[in-house]
Design a protein around this nucleic acid. Sequence first.
DNA 1: TAATAAAATTAGAATTGTTCTAAAATGGTA
DNA 2: TACCATTTTAGAACAATTCTAATTTTATTA
Lengths: 129, 129
Amino acid sequence: MTKYEREIFAIVTTSREHLTVEQIFQRLKRTHPNVVLATVYNNLNRLLEEGLIRKVSIEGMPDRYDRTEKHDHLVCRNCGKIADITLRDLTESLNEQLGDDFLYYDLKVFYLCPACRKILQEQNSHSTE
Amino acid sequence: MTKYEREIFAIVTTSREHLTVEQIFQRLKRTHPNVVLATVYNNLNRLLEEGLIRKVSIEGMPDRYDRTEKHDHLVCRNCGKIADITLRDLTESLNEQLGDDFLYYDLKVFYLCPACRKILQEQNSHSTE
DNA sequence: TAATAAAATTAGAATTGTTCTAAAATGGTA
DNA sequence: TACCATTTTAGAACAATTCTAATTTTATTA
């Protein structure tokens, strides 16, 4: 593992925020001001290949990176913010239903996060005044 | 609904292939050779806003478009091809677990499609010759 | 330790997917 | 028909990501 690979791995896995490439880049620059964006991409891709991190895609937003420990995601329909949740495991149920062996699954539950719910409610009440 | 909106809606909903923008564009050109890519984007976005179609994002691939009837997706880890499946509904279970009201969920099950499995097996046997 | 090979990083161009802008075309509606 | 709103067009602009080639760093070995 190279210096940057290790640092980027640490940034991704210690943050609970599901960072974008740009955010990871900004954090890395705090300690390594001369690092370049391509290096972040290179190392993220390397880490992905090695299976040490995972990518989370939410439609319409840049990809985010996440630790690999099994968990599901609660995604705000409005702002795209992601929160971790651990829901009942579906492996057994899927094995039962699919028979065939699958590799893994990705479950995203969409909702309105408290902040967005509030904003939308306010907008609503204004528009009906 | 405009002419193009209707046609694009038909293309998306009658295809079982989870088409990309480019594929939709190519099909539309068969009957309307002068149509322009921006029109496809415009109409897809309109249809999305109206809730008449949905978008399916697979990391690392261009967005795909799909009908809205409830179903899940089986995604090939290798080539990204998507197949529809209808698995046991999770709404009740999620309500139970999350208490709070969620909007909807997205369940993708990753696997190797038969074609890719074959290719990968062959590659494997060659490399160990 | 010097020489060499391999891998990682850099800089910036290139590509891809998508949105934006302003002008032109089209479609009702009064 | 005249008007206004909507849609389409053309192409520029943009954002995210990959690619390429040169340079630097790291590891290996003589």
